[in-house]
C-alpha cells in the first residue's frame, strides 16, 4: 500500500523530506520509523492525515504520515 511519509527536523538528515513509500498493509508509524532507521522512542509527535496519532495505529492506503522529533517554541 502507498503511504506518503513526511519527515521533520533532524529526522530528515540523510533521508528525505516527503516521499510516497510502498509499505506492507497495516504497518504502524512505529514500523515505518523502524524501516527508515529512526528510533521510535525519539518521536515527539506523530500525525496521520493532520491528526495526532499513536505509534501503533495501523496505517491505511493513501494516508499521510508526519513524523516529528520533540519540538517546542512559541
Amino acid at each position: 500500500m502507498k503511504v506518503r511519509v513526511r519527515l521533520f527536523g533532524a529526522f530528515r538528515q540523510g533521508r528525505f523530506r516527503d516521499k510516497i513509500l510502498d509499505l506492507e498493509a497495516g504497518i504502524t508509524p512505529s514500523g515505518v520509523m523502524e524501516s527508515l532507521g529512526i528510533d521510535a522512542g525519539k518521536a515527539g509527535i506523530i500525525m496521520v492525515n493532520s491528526r495526532h496519532a499513536s505509534l501503533d495505529r495501523a496505517l491505511s492506503e493513501g494516508d499521510i504520515l508526519a513524523v516529528f522529533p520533540a519540538v517546542g517554541g512559541g
Binding site: 513526511r6 521533520f8 527536523g9 533532524a10 525519539k42 515527539g44 509527535i45 500525525m47 493532520s50 495526532h52 508526519a66 516529528f68 522529533p69 520533540a70 519540538v71 517546542g72 517554541g73 512559541g74
Partner: peptide
C-alpha cells in the same frame, strides 16, 4: 529533548508542525 531541538532549529521549527496540524 525540546531544549535540544530548539537549539538546533530555533522556534521556527514550529512552522511545519503547526502547518501539518
Amino acid at each position: 529533548p525540546v531544549s535540544q531541538t530548539l537549539g538546533e532549529y530555533g522556534t521556527d521549527i514550529l512552522i511545519n508542525v503547526v502547518n501539518e496540524a
